[in-house]
Simulated assay, not measured.
Amino acid sequence: MSRRSAMKLVGLGLGTIAAAGVGVGGVRAATNGAFSAGSGDPYGLWHDWTTLSGIDRVVAAGVLACNPHNTQAWRIAVNGDTIHVYSDARRRMPLNDASAREHFAGLGCAVENMVIAAGPAGFTAHVTLFPDGIASDHVARIALRDGGTGQDRDLAAAIPHRHTNRGPYKSTPVDLGGFTEQSSRIDGASVLWITDKAAREQLGRLYVEATEAITADTAQSTEAFSWFRSARSTIDRHRDGLTLDGQGLGGLTLFAAKLLPAQSRKDGDAFWVKATREVHTATAAAYGVITVDDVTNRMAQVSGGRLLARMHLTATSLGLGLHHMNQITERIDRDRAAGSLDVFSARWAAVLGRPAPTGLLSFRIGHPERTPGLSPRRSLKDVLTT
């Protein structure tokens, strides 16, 4: 074991791995999915998507969309050649997403994934947002018609390969020219790139501070931890949320994490803060911020999510890693909802160079050192409703 690997194990609280015992450790490794990562029913849609056709292929693309915390906040109904996307309020995170910006942005990601998949599948897609009014849970109606185009073929091909990459990125600069065409594709949303070293360092410090604030807030931390699926049985049952496989760990460290009992919430929080400081912000080649006119507007939230989906698929098609990082805006919304002092908005605005209520979502990108793990997804039958 290299010194670097050993230090990572210590950082995870796994320095006593040898004490687990081979027999007990082997049982725990199996229980926690050390030998079945990325396989089985929770991951079937990633592997099967390319074999699907017609409307099933389009709907499945929506289920495979990026979405904050992997809450998969959608319910989907199909009526003939029309797809209806609904918000599932049971999948809200009111403490970590007090304004519901992430909830509705995730729904926008699903909508845009379906639009992108429609063309190569032989359809044109006509989208109507909130057809029953802005207060309705009916988020979008997607009418499919025959006559697809190849305009989004490259992005569609990236759908089964798009995964959030939380691991370290290389120091190689990122050429953002490949994002130009997609950056203006969604009305009402745009991308602000932060590439200057000083600005990146300033934003990095803000991310770390926001992460520390979330972990110090017991209620917010507890809600976030409730979406972490550690045991394989939990992954099989829920087929959503975050997992060890998606944390960007190296092979040895990941196996060791599954060998020992699941971490406590406090240990997990400590690892998250450490990773934010020493990996996520330390290796970000650039940051992107999805901006809109008003982050509290439902239409803007969905539109921002649609653009985010295009950004993530573009990154995948270019061989880049993308990692959603929304700690700052989560704390802004949390402080306002709780009536606490807002300690982040002014500094968030200073980094953006524009008012804080225009910065909807943010992410880091770079050339990844590791291939990201797959996230669990519900099946079509679990998502489709009448």
Score class of each variant (00 low, 15 high):
109 C>E: 07
185 R>W: 02
122 G>Q: 14
328 I>N: 04
333 D>L: 11
112 E>A: 04
351 V>R: 11
150 G>N: 14
50 T>I: 10
80 G>R: 06
49 W>E: 08
211 T>H: 00
156 A>G: 08
268 G>D: 04
259 L>S: 14
259 L>E: 03
315 A>R: 04
135 A>T: 09
88 D>I: 04
336 R>M: 06
103 H>L: 00
301 Q>F: 00
127 V>D: 15
156 A>S: 06
28 R>G: 11
104 F>L: 08
34 A>C: 00
199 A>I: 02
190 S>Q: 01
228 F>V: 15
308 L>G: 05
295 V>T: 15
28 R>E: 15
44 G>Y: 02
263 Q>G: 13
281 T>V: 07
367 H>R: 13
358 T>E: 10
282 A>Y: 01
154 D>L: 12
350 A>Q: 06
120 P>H: 11
230 S>P: 07
48 D>C: 07
181 E>P: 14
111 V>S: 08
131 P>S: 02
44 G>T: 01
372 P>M: 00
166 R>A: 03
21 G>Y: 09
48 D>F: 02
204 G>D: 09
376 P>M: 00
284 A>W: 01
96 N>F: 00
192 L>T: 05
20 A>I: 15
191 V>D: 05
155 L>R: 11
70 N>L: 06
244 L>P: 05
21 G>K: 05
345 S>R: 14
255 F>G: 09
330 E>R: 12
59 V>T: 06
209 E>V: 12
88 D>V: 06
145 R>N: 05
302 V>K: 04
202 Q>G: 03
8 K>V: 12
244 L>E: 15
283 T>L: 01
172 T>W: 07
324 H>G: 05
218 T>K: 11
62 G>E: 10
74 W>D: 03
102 E>M: 07
171 S>M: 04
51 T>Q: 08
120 P>Q: 05
170 K>F: 00
223 E>G: 10
203 L>D: 12
332 I>P: 08
273 V>C: 14
66 C>T: 03
335 D>Q: 10
7 M>Q: 02
358 T>I: 03
186 I>R: 03
219 A>V: 08
61 A>Y: 02
245 D>G: 14
255 F>V: 11
160 P>Q: 14
148 G>Y: 01
